[in-house]
Amino acid sequence: MADLVDSMLDLMRRLPPTRTEENVAALIGICPDYADDLLGSVDQPLQLRTDRATGREYLACDYNRDGESYRSPWSNEYDPPLDDGTVPTPKLRKLEITANEAFDTYREMYYEGGVSSVYLWDLDDGGFAGVVLLKKIMTPMSPYEPSGSWDSIHVFETAERGRQAHYKLTSTIMLQLVTRRGSERDGAEGDRKHDKKDSEGWKREGEVSLSGSMTRQTEQDWPLQDSSSHITNTGKMIEEMEIKMRNLLQEVYFGKTRDIVYDLRSVDDLEKARRQRELQKELVGFIKR
């Protein structure tokens, strides 16, 4: 029944991204046997949690979950506590600590806020895999101020080949932007490019919401000096990927969706343009004669 999972994924690709959590829960309700397939392949907004030991915030997702508990990257402890929760081997945990520090610096430099978390786990074939998570939320101070959230999920797998390492990276970015508009705000900001005389009688209230997610993959080989090279290598790959995807998101969110609105409705009078074309044709015919 592989195609059942395909149908679920196709459905999730069509339904509104703002309702992903609710829809995933409904799908699990219909097909409980496929809960793991679904949770493993549909990216959901990252949950913010607080490490009880250090008081520091971390991000929860399917990768640091064991049963009902989530592991903090800062204390390595599960919450609610687990006696036999899966943790990385001591060697990998050491790398995980360094990776968390490095990506925390990355987070501060690009996000100037937000929360980051890195989780690593051993693979059966001797290699390891990991996930780098970044999240930032902008909360509006007033009703007409824009709000938004950014969630990055970078999952990678690595296999060492002598002095080289091969990396497979799958990156998903979820981005949500919401702006509310209303007459009140128009008034407050004075003449907001509106012809005041005309618009005076109108009362307006509205919301613009742009939301969604995009996923991209890449595979690369990088030189390996010691185990910390994994952090510089994945760091460079993830930085490059986020720069590329940020441009892509900008293009799709602010370019493509706007163009489609203009494909539906034209600000300029189409009839006028049609008449102009007719006239031009006539003129061309006239000159040819």
Partner: peptide, 24 residues
């Protein structure tokens, strides 16, 4: 006025707008 746009090449991006108006 309600506008809905769906862009879904290697992703799922949706624009949803609402704009309510009244005029005497």
């Amino acid at each position: 006025i309600l506008v809905n746009i769906h862009y879904y090449e290697q992703g799922n991006v949706q624009l949803a707008t609402t704009h309510e108006i009244s005029l005497a």
